[in-house]
Design a protein around this nucleic acid. Structure first.
Length: 719
DNA sequence: GCAAGGTC
């Protein structure tokens, strides 16, 4: 009897192999793909693994205008470049699953996991395999849970499968088709290709940002006053009313207190503790790396994945803030101790290892933690993230930090002012987590009843501030809260919005294009801009899960809705397209042209490079080529007023957008002819470029012959 | 060319 077990990812395959047979043998297919051969209760078992989804939806006919007829195809066929690696996994499954007597579906127990195993069985092992398949249901990868799941296998939950399929189909129907409609509106109106998109997650995310933008725009600041007493020994005390919105009241306090001395009214001493921070889940790590190192969530995620693949840290796509004892903390610390800097901290650990945990849980994985295997080679940024993970892990086992606070109230002419001091009495975990500053202020030497000299009373006028813009880390938190996207996709969603030029900046601002996308979609498919669609879909999918509605019904309803939306958009195509394109142009404005038009950054598909041109083209032919990777600086050239750019590395060059700025313009318009082009026979001319003078062909861009000035003599001789 | 989801 031969049994095949299919897992979602190689790490869980390994855990299952070890749980079933401590002598399980890991082997490799095509030098890359791991699989395991073992014996459990006298049965020969092969364990193979997927790498997440191996199959994805694709249109039956890619030439269709609208995509409603879809089928499942291997990912490596759909995305030939970035998913090429999945081919070996599919082939391995095909090879080892052939002719097995029974199959076990052992992917993660959630909708996507169920679908991953289902498509792997159906399309890689053959439809018949589903008749011989059972399902392992486990929520942790501990030996006990896995053995339990193996012994008590259940049937594959077809409602779960259908609900997963419906999710994929609906996301495709809405996302791809509406994106296509937006793109086509621009192409109809302006004959230009503009990559635009909309989707169940990205559009509500953009909408959140637009709402915040509106709140900021509509915000009416209100003035208020803070009154401060400048006391002896550089102590500053603030009036206990805090923000004072009534200017007369502020004036009253000021005139009442000026020139008077104060007396210490009350001193309140109190103690407080600060518990250790909680273990990292992916969102937590992304937020901390953003705040401490300014790393984008996407960058942190990539680094965490690399550290995991290399074996230095645990599985990164977890939402858990818990560290179960089964992780064998002692063993991890023993490994980490081989690093001198870590050892200093580990040696001070309490004998009883009990971590401070957070509330969030994850069915399949614990919080992110080091494995105890020390890395030998990491680049600068990887090392930063690795150390952050290690120190956070160590610090959660220490005791709380203790603080002593002194809150002093000073009476000046019957008005109360107060000041606070806080000092650390026991550093606890904070001594082992070097990414937080520790309050340690000196307590001034005063006691109740003391007279205290007042040097001045000042009134500071301030105003209330609008809500802050989101940054990438706080936006991810917001998406978590609203349950939009998943822990694995949130960073990508934000990167996508940036790529589409819907948003920009570290303090995220929505561009005019982003605003117009939301305006347009609100008009034609309001469902997509709110979280409604997600909620609605969830309910319907749950319906499938609970056998209340069929997959077909839910998909058909979605199809009808999309058809109506596309119809509406089609009726106003040109209007929508021009509005979107014009606002896109705006996002690329880099400065003013001398003709009065705007200078915009554009892309030339012919030369595959960016350049700057004027919006009045073809009447105005002003154009400047851009060096690779050029960024626009926030200043303009002192000589000509054009924007300044920065390009190159170490150190970057800062220069005027016009490479000929300050040079004799007649030269560039009437370049000196120095000979004939050896490639096309046209005139060779002397040109000046960003990096100095060079020889170019007048036949440019058809002929791309160039040479340095020094090479000129030998070129002319040879031809 | 377009989504969102899983994973290396």
């Amino acid at each position: 009897m031969h049994e095949v077990i299919i897992c979602e990812k190689p790490t869980s395959a390994q855990k299952i192999a070890q749980a079933l047979d401590s002598k399980a043998k890991m082997q490799k297919y095509n030098k890359k793909v791991k699989y395991w051969e073992l014996n459990h209760d006298g049965k020969d078992i092969t364990i193979v693994s997927a790498v997440g989804h191996l199959y994805s939806l694709t249109p039956d006919n890619p030439k269709d205008k609208v995509y409603f007829d879809l089928h499942w195809a291997p990912l490596y066929e759909i995305d030939k470049k970035s998913k090429a690696y999945t081919r070996d996994y599919v082939n391995a499954i095909k090879k080892f699953a052939k002719g097995a007597d029974s199959y076990i579906h052992a992917c993660d127990y959630d909708i996507e996991g169920t679908l991953i195993g289902y498509t792997a069985l159906k399309y890689a092992c053959g439809e018949d395999s589903l008749n011989k398949a059972s399902r392992m249901k486990f929520s942790t990868l501990t030996k006990k849970d896995l053995l339990d799941a193996y012994e008590n296998r259940i049937d594959i939950d077809m409602h779960q499968v259908d609900s997963g399929i419906a999710r994929h189909v609906l996301d495709y129907y809405f996302g791809v088709n509406i994106s296509k409609a937006l793109i086509s509106s621009v192409s109809k109106a302006k004959s230009r290709y503009l990559k635009l998109s909309a989707g169940r997650v990205q559009t509500p995310t953009l909408s959140i940002l637009v709402d915040r933008e509106k709140e900021i725009k509509d915000f009416v600041p209100e003035p208020f006053w803070i009154l401060k007493a400048l006391l002896e020994n550089d102590i500053v005390a603030e009036h206990v009313d805090g923000k004072i919105f009534d200017p007369e009241r502020a004036e009253e306090i000021l005139s009442k207190c000026r020139g008077k001395d104060g007396s210490v009214d009350k001193i309140k001493l109190s103690n407080s503790t600060t518990k250790p921070l909680v273990p990292f889940n992916l969102g937590g790590l992304q937020a901390e790396a953003y705040n401490v190192f300014n790393f984008s969530p996407k960058k942190t995620q990539t680094i965490a994945q690399n550290l995991y693949t290399a074996g230095y840290t645990s599985y990164p796509r977890t939402s858990s803030q818990k560290l179960p004892e089964s992780l064998d903390f002692k063993n991890i610390f023993n490994g980490l101790k081989n690093n001198k800097e870590f050892k200093v901290h580990i040696d001070q650990l309490p004998s009883k290892l009990k971590p401070n945990e957070g509330k969030k849980e994850d069915a399949a994985h614990p919080a992110i933690h080091p494995t105890g295997i020390l890395p030998d080679k990491l680049d600068k940024d990887e090392l930063k993230v690795y150390q952050l993970i290690v120190y956070r892990f160590i610090s959660v086992f220490f005791e709380a930090a203790k603080f002593e606070s002194m809150n002093t109230t000073v009476n000046i002419a019957d008005e109360l002012f107060s000041f606070k001091r806080r000092r650390v009495t026991h550093k606890g975990w904070m001594e082992h987590y070097p990414y937080r500053s520790i309050d340690n202020e000196e307590f001034p030497d005063v006691k109740e009843g003391d007279t205290i000299a007042v040097e001045d009373i000042i009134s500071e006028e301030k105003e209330t501030k609008p809500p802050a813009r989101y940054n990438q880390a706080s936006l991810i938190k917001e998406l978590e809260k609203r349950e939009l996207g998943t822990k694995a996709t949130r960073a990508d969603i934000i990167a996508k919005l940036e790529d589409r030029k819907y948003i920009s900046g570290t303090k995220i601002e929505v561009t005019q294009l982003g605003e117009n996308i939301i305006d347009t979609l609100k008009e034609y498919c309001a469902n997509l801009t709110s979280e409604e669609l997600t909620r609605e879909m969830e309910l319907k999918l749950e319906g499938i899960d609970e056998d209340k509605s069929s997959k077909e019904e839910v998909i058909d309803e979605g199809k009808k809705e999309v058809i109506t939306i596309l119809d509406d958009i089609g009726k106003h195509e040109k209007e929508i397209g021009s509005k979107l394109y014009d606002s896109y142009q705006e996002t690329n404005i880099v400065g003013k042209c001398s003709c009065g038009g705007n200078l915009i950054k554009r892309y030339s598909p012919k030369t595959k490079s960016h350049f700057v041109g004027c919006t009045n083209y073809p009447e105005c032919t002003v154009a400047y080529s851009l060096p690779k990777g050029a960024r626009f600086l926030k200043k303009t050239c002192e000589k000509c007023g054009l924007p300044m750019i920065s390009f190159g590395r170490k150190p970057p060059t800062h220069a005027c957008l016009d490479p000929n700025c300050g040079k004799d313009k007649t030269k560039t318009h009437n370049p000196e002819v120095v000979g004939k082009c050896p490639e096309c026979g046209k005139d060779l001319v002397k040109r000046s470029g960003r990096y100095g003078d060079f020889i170019g062909c007048k036949g440019f861009p058809k002929c791309r012959f160039t040479a340095s000035v020094d090479e000129l003599d030998s070129i002319l001789k040879n031809s």
